[in-house]
């Protein structure tokens, strides 16, 4: 479904900061219907990677093949059409404050020029799917974080995409809400057969949601495989330390906690 070959990204130098190579040649294959996690520390290049899939960032080298097309070859004019085949969910939800829940979910369809009836046909069944029937005409300001993210997920699904990209979608949520959102995503994946790419810095997210995982560090994938296998036998130091973070909550390992903390995201 998605094939990244030698994807590289260098952010050009700006006033005050030198050019920065965020991706050093990424190879990643994602099969249709699969949920692939990409995990790594802050600055590892995870967001850059996922943004290269829908061309929010244009790779400096390499190819991104989505559903048989090398999308890096698309001209600017054709990008919107391509992007409508992908849904994206964001850490900070990015909902329009001026639109109700219904109208936020309808936006991708509106952009594609769908009629009122087509929009209703697509949005109405999504509301119960994400558990927001009773919030249809509410504004984002009236919702909790978890509810906002449900709107974000429904919005990503409304144009009936083949692929959903998730960038740290639970990082702004508490543990219980995180669990609910993850099981919602899992459920949607099963029901709709969607392909999902999930960016996270928490192993717990990978454990609960993903089939496969790629561990990133310094702009490269250092380890990749089935989730169970990686958990059972982490070979790379980055993977091991990310796994150790999972025990941060337990006071039994104060040393590990202190060590891991120094590398933590601010």
């Amino acid at each position: 479904m998605i094939r990244l070959s030698n994807v590289q990204k260098t952010y050009p130098a700006r006033r005050g900061s030198p050019a920065h190579k965020a991706l050093h040649g990424i190879d990643l294959d994602i099969a249709a219907g699969e949920i692939v996690g990409v995990i790594g520390r802050s600055g590892a290049g995870k967001s850059t990677l996922i943004r290269c899939i829908n061309l929010l960032e244009v790779p400096t080298a390499g190819s991104v093949i989505v559903d048989g097309t090398d999308v890096t070859q698309l001209v600017k004019r054709d990008l919107p059409l391509f992007r409508r085949q992908l849904g994206m969910v964001f850490q900070h939800f990015n909902l329009l404050s001026s639109r109700t829940v219904y109208d936020n979910i309808a936006l991708p369809l509106e952009l594609a020029g769908a009629s009122k009836a087509e929009i209703a046909a697509a949005v109405d069944p999504l509301l119960p799917l994400v558990g927001l029937e009773d919030k249809r005409d509410r504004y984002p300001a009236e919702l909790s974080g978890g509810q906002k993210q449900r709107v974000g997920i429904a919005r990503a699904l409304s144009s009936n995409p083949k692929v959903v990209l998730c960038d740290e979608v639970t990082s702004a949520l508490d543990p219980e809400t995180t669990r609910q959102i993850l099981s919602l995503l899992r459920d949607i994946n099963k029901r709709l057969g969607l392909t999902m790419v999930v960016i996270t810095h928490e192993m717990a997210v990978v454990k609960q949601l993903c089939d496969r995982v790629a561990v990133m560090d310094g702009g490269v994938i250092v380890e990749e495989g089935k989730v169970d296998a990686i958990f059972a036998n982490p070979t790379h130091a980055t993977t091991q330390s990310l796994l150790a973070d999972e025990f941060l909550d337990y006071p039994a390992r104060p040393n590990a906690a202190a060590n891991a903390n120094t590398g933590q995201e601010a």
Partner: peptide
Amino acid sequence: DGGLVEAAQAMGAR
């Protein structure tokens, strides 16, 4: 918020 522009572009907004 710039995130909204990005979200719209990701949805395929011209």
